[in-house]
Amino acid sequence: MSIASPCINICRMSAATGLCEGCFRSLDEIARWSRSADADKRHILELIAQRRASLGAAAPTLASTEGA
Rank of each mutant, 00 (worst) to 15 (best):
N9G: 01
D38G: 03
D28K: 09
E29L: 06
S54K: 08
T65Y: 04
D40W: 02
L19H: 06
A57C: 11
M1T: 11
W33D: 04
G56H: 09
D28R: 10
D40N: 07
S34H: 11
H43A: 14
C7F: 00
A58K: 15
A58D: 15
G67L: 06
L27K: 12
S14R: 12
I44N: 00
A59Q: 12
E21L: 12
R25G: 01
E21G: 05
S5F: 00
S54Y: 04
A37P: 09
R25C: 02
M1P: 14
A15K: 15
E46R: 06
F24L: 13
G67P: 03
L55D: 09
M1S: 12
A63I: 10
Q50Y: 02
A63F: 11
I48L: 03
T61Y: 07
P6L: 03
E66Q: 14
G56F: 09
I8A: 00
S34K: 08
G22Y: 03
S36Q: 13
C7Y: 00
E46C: 02
T17W: 06
R12H: 14
G67T: 06
D38E: 13
C11K: 06
N9T: 05
L27T: 04
N9K: 08
L19N: 03
W33V: 05
E66W: 07
S34G: 15
L55N: 08
H43F: 07
I48K: 00
N9H: 12
A4R: 11
I8R: 02
A58F: 08
L62R: 12
G18Y: 08
C7G: 01
E21Q: 12
S2C: 08
R51W: 10
A39I: 10
A4D: 12
G18F: 13
S64W: 14
E46K: 06
R51G: 06
G56L: 05
D38A: 09
L62I: 15
L45Q: 06
G67D: 04
N9F: 06
L45S: 02
W33I: 05
C20P: 00
P6S: 05
A63G: 09
K41Q: 13
A59K: 14
T17K: 09
I48A: 00
C23P: 01
G22V: 03
A37R: 13
S34E: 12
R32S: 10
L19F: 09
R52D: 06
M1G: 14
A57L: 14
D38P: 12
G56P: 09
R25I: 02
S5C: 15
A58N: 14
D40I: 02
T65W: 03
W33L: 08
S2K: 08
R51P: 11
H43M: 08
A49K: 11
G22E: 07
